[in-house]
Amino acid sequence: MRDQRLWTWHVAAGLVVLVTLALHMAIMHLDALLGLFNPAGGHPIDWANVAARSRQGFFLVSYVVLLGAALFHGLYGLRTILHELGPGPALRRGVDVTLLAGGGVLFVFGAWAAWAAFALARTV
């Protein structure tokens, strides 16, 4: 049941990442061609542009969704690779627990950063 459930979510998370990360990549790396969501002009990583995106609820939600989906998709992929190396049952369990804990910490940290940036940008 475990892999049946996790693999289904892995594919679903991959589709979510496909949409949200494609948007993120288009904004950050195809700026000269598309010029999306960079209201201050210049480079997408200029603080004025970063703050402008951070204060929008849409970006807060999409960043957190991308964060969660990409962490799950990526860490499940890593788990698959590590399991396929043929570790014993104890090591498999160790891999699962480590990835789950690491993923949880990074999600909380990343979501907090997105929220804090949202709150900060709103006050400025």
Partner: peptide, 23 residues
Amino acid sequence: TGLGLLVYFLLHIIVTSARAFGA
């Protein structure tokens, strides 16, 4: 590519969290 993207992504979460502390 999946492994490469994952490594970059994990570092990216930490590096870009600086936006929470201002300009």
